[in-house]
Computed example of a mutant assay.
Amino acid sequence: MALLITDECINCDACISECPNNAIYEPDQEWSYSDETVLSGTVTTPSGNEVDADAENEPLSDEFYFIVADKCTECKGFHDKPQCASVCPVDCCVPDEDHEETEEQLLEKKVWLHGE
């Protein structure tokens, strides 16, 4: 499943550079599916929604760092464990119960994001 950042986040910035999918954003930052991925133009997300990959989307939080679930692969295909959770000093990068996915689905999402 994807991860999320809880409201215990201290906005330390440790997680953002660790994410191989560029799925973590600063508070109040707009985001897009195309950020640091091969996605461009109209695409269908792993959850089945059609979106403009280049469109800037509203921030998911204006107070804490946040993870875009459609871009989070738990680092599958890159690392043995989620890197954000490994470096978080307050353990606020946790599994997102609303986005359960199998390892196979996470690896398919990695290919969707990076074409590899």
Results as ranks from 00 to 15, higher is better:
residue 83 Q to G: 09
residue 8 E to A: 14
residue 90 V to Y: 07
residue 61 S to T: 09
residue 78 F to E: 14
residue 31 W to R: 00
residue 36 E to D: 15
residue 97 E to Y: 09
residue 62 D to N: 14
residue 6 T to I: 09
residue 65 Y to Q: 14
residue 28 D to V: 01
residue 111 V to Y: 11
residue 27 P to L: 07
residue 89 P to L: 07
residue 5 I to Q: 10
residue 67 I to E: 05
residue 92 C to T: 12
residue 3 L to Q: 14
residue 37 T to G: 07
residue 112 W to T: 05
residue 71 K to C: 09
residue 25 Y to F: 14
residue 54 D to I: 03
residue 24 I to V: 12
residue 71 K to P: 03
residue 26 E to Q: 11
residue 91 D to S: 11
residue 18 E to S: 03
residue 19 C to T: 04
residue 14 A to T: 09
residue 37 T to N: 04
residue 23 A to K: 01
residue 57 N to P: 14
residue 73 T to R: 12
residue 23 A to F: 00
residue 79 H to V: 13
residue 79 H to D: 15
residue 10 I to F: 01
residue 51 V to K: 05
residue 25 Y to A: 02
residue 71 K to Q: 12
residue 56 E to Y: 03
residue 19 C to D: 06
residue 104 E to G: 06
residue 102 T to C: 00
residue 70 D to V: 07
residue 74 E to M: 15
residue 60 L to A: 11
residue 78 F to D: 15
residue 14 A to G: 07
residue 93 C to V: 13
residue 54 D to Y: 06
residue 111 V to H: 11
residue 22 N to E: 10
residue 46 P to F: 05
residue 2 A to T: 01
residue 9 C to I: 02
residue 47 S to M: 07
residue 20 P to Q: 09
residue 37 T to E: 07
residue 82 P to S: 08
residue 94 V to L: 02
residue 16 I to R: 00
residue 40 S to Y: 13
residue 9 C to E: 06
residue 18 E to Q: 12
residue 56 E to Q: 13
residue 47 S to Y: 05
residue 28 D to K: 10
residue 20 P to L: 10
residue 20 P to E: 10
residue 38 V to K: 13
residue 97 E to I: 06
residue 96 D to C: 03
residue 39 L to Y: 02
residue 93 C to R: 00
residue 63 E to L: 11
residue 66 F to A: 10
residue 105 Q to K: 12
residue 2 A to V: 00
residue 53 A to L: 06
residue 78 F to I: 15
residue 46 P to W: 02
residue 45 T to M: 08
residue 82 P to K: 02
residue 80 D to K: 13
residue 5 I to T: 03
residue 80 D to C: 10
residue 87 V to G: 02
residue 42 T to P: 00
residue 115 G to Q: 04
residue 72 C to V: 02
residue 67 I to N: 05
residue 1 M to H: 07
residue 19 C to M: 08
residue 70 D to F: 04
residue 65 Y to I: 13
residue 75 C to S: 12
residue 3 L to N: 15
residue 100 E to T: 03
residue 13 D to W: 14
residue 32 S to W: 00
residue 18 E to D: 03
residue 19 C to K: 02
residue 8 E to P: 07
residue 74 E to G: 12
residue 62 D to H: 11
residue 51 V to E: 12
residue 111 V to T: 15
residue 14 A to P: 02
residue 48 G to C: 04
residue 10 I to K: 03
residue 79 H to R: 15
residue 76 K to Y: 15
residue 88 C to W: 03
residue 23 A to G: 07
residue 104 E to I: 14
residue 52 D to F: 01
residue 48 G to T: 04
residue 93 C to D: 02
residue 48 G to E: 05
residue 14 A to S: 14
residue 86 S to P: 12
residue 101 E to G: 05
residue 26 E to N: 10
residue 98 D to Q: 11
residue 6 T to D: 04
residue 44 T to N: 03
residue 8 E to Q: 14
residue 56 E to N: 09
residue 77 G to D: 07
residue 106 L to M: 11
residue 87 V to E: 05
residue 33 Y to V: 06
residue 18 E to F: 01
residue 110 K to Y: 10
residue 82 P to H: 06
residue 86 S to N: 14
residue 1 M to P: 04
residue 48 G to P: 01
residue 10 I to M: 02
residue 100 E to S: 09
residue 37 T to V: 07
residue 18 E to T: 00
residue 62 D to M: 12
residue 79 H to I: 13
residue 97 E to R: 10
residue 10 I to W: 00
residue 67 I to K: 04
residue 96 D to L: 03
residue 115 G to A: 06
